[in-house]
Structures are given as structure tokens and as C-alpha cells.
Design a protein around this nucleic acid. Sequence first.
DNA 1: TTATATATCTACTAAATCTATAGGATAATT
DNA 2: AATTATCCTATAGATTTAGTAGATATATAA
Lengths: 137, 137
Amino acid sequence: MLSKKTKYGLKALTYLARRNTKEPIAIAEIAKHENISQKFLENILLSLRSTGFLGSKKGKGGGYYLIKDPSEIPMTTVMRVLEGPIAMVSCVSLNFYEKCDDCPDEPSCSVHRLMLKVRDSNLEVYRNTFLADLLTE
Amino acid sequence: MLSKKTKYGLKALTYLARRNTKEPIAIAEIAKHENISQKFLENILLSLRSTGFLGSKKGKGGGYYLIKDPSEIPMTTVMRVLEGPIAMVSCVSLNFYEKCDDCPDEPSCSVHRLMLKVRDSNLEVYRNTFLADLLTE
DNA sequence: TTATATATCTACTAAATCTATAGGATAATT
DNA sequence: AATTATCCTATAGATTTAGTAGATATATAA
């Protein structure tokens, strides 16, 4: 299942993209409109900031804003920060590879085989989907 | 992340398919060869039995055996039993659909949009992959 | 300079889920 | 009757998730 963290994070980014302004938008506003616990959202936006496409400003009139255009924000980046590795097992992960401790041989492992296909398939979706694609036209 | 339950279940099925016999194979044998806790595997195989492609026999000489040919056992069925719904959110689930309580409108929901793509993509993989495809040739 | 509004950061707690184990019940074989 | 193996239910420990609390840092405005 998709975590609430990811769900909320996506909704928040979508909200920012739809507001379509360079002005910072307060967490409180996003939380209210998207029905998210404000404190929880604080943590989520904080972790998204590390991606480089999300900026923030403190103090009165502060908040969060998109640095890049939504058409340049790929879901690969978003999902990796929010949900973690795209691969379902670490032995097929591109960015977080780790050998399975119980599996003696990867090429002959059925789990490895199946999850490789799943990873490729998901990766294609995430690579070809940008924040802009999730906004309603 | 893929659950251990699913991982073990897949390995067990693969083991059965590779043994390539109609004779029942004891849980103990599978558990030993695949490095799985026997008691845990009991539960897993039990739940897989409901799919119809896995049979069991009690008593001496008993165990589990595949009823169908591995080329006729699709991953959609396996994954749904072991890992649960293929969709990452219930609002895009084919078999377990449920409306999100916090989301007023599905067509305009960005999470819905993205997860629809992901579901379709995963579904294609699982539908086109059969147990037989996971065995090393 | 002071008050206010906002993000930042760390720590914590409660609930849910996952992993595994325990022990007996049931059924088939010898 | 004894043995062997699956079947079934319950439970316990570990981990993860979701959410909360409270103090700190920083920017704005009066």
C-alpha cells in the first residue's frame, strides 16, 4: 500500500503546482485544503526540500514554493524521497542495491526475476510521468 | 517493500515447480532447501491453497503439490493472495475497490491518476508472467 | 525593538502491521 | 494404535507508520 506520507506529499505538490505562483504558500493553507494534519505535513515537506525542486521561506509570508516547473519534476525523484526505493526488493534496486542474505544466486532466483520486471515497469511509469501530468486540464 | 510472506511463497512455488513431480512434497523439505522457517511456511502454503492451483495431502508421504502446470499459474493470482491487492491505493483497485474517505473527487486527484498508471503497468507484468517464466532454463 | 507568523528540528507515543512461534486438532498411512 | 504430516487458532515480539508535542530559528511588519 501507498503510505500516507507519499499520498499527502503528492497532494501537497499538486496543490502548489495548481496555485501556479512563485509566492510561498504556508503549510497551514495546504494542510487545510488537502485535509492533512499540519504537523505531519511539516515533516513531509521538509523531507521533500532535499530534492532541490522545492524551496521554502521562513517568517511571516513564508511557506513553500516550487523552484522548478512542474513539467520538469519527475515522479522518480518524488517517489524515491517519499516512498523509498522503487524496487520492491533491494537486490533489484538501482540506487539502493544490496544482496539478499538468504539468496545464494540471483540469476536463478524467481523472486529476483519477477521483481526485476516489476521494477522496470514501474520505473518506466515514474520516469515518464511528471508533476505536470498529474494536474487536471 | 515485498513482504517475506510473498518472497517465501514465491520461492516455495518455484521449488515445487522445479521438482516437477505429482508427488506431494513436505513443507519441511521446502523450508529446509529455501531457508524458510517451517512454521511460517505452513501458514503461507495454507493461504495459497485457496487459489486452486495448489493441492495438499495429509499424513505420511503427504505434502504440497501443484495441481496446474506452471505455465498456467499467473502471477496476478499469486500476488493477490500473498501480497494483497495489486493496486497501491484502494480507489484504483479492480478487485478491492473502495472510495477514499478524504478525497472528494477521483478524476481530479493526482494520487489517483498516478496510481492508475502504476496499477496498469504492474497488472500487465503480472498478467503476462506465469510461474513457468520464473524458472531458470 | 517588539510582536507575530512561519519554517525547522528533535523526540516521543500510539496504533497498526509484519514476522515468527506455540500447541493442539485433524487426517492419512503403516 | 502409532506415526507422520497438514490444518487451524492464538499469541508474542519486532518493526513501521502515523501523528503529536514542544522548543528553536528566522523573516516580516508595526
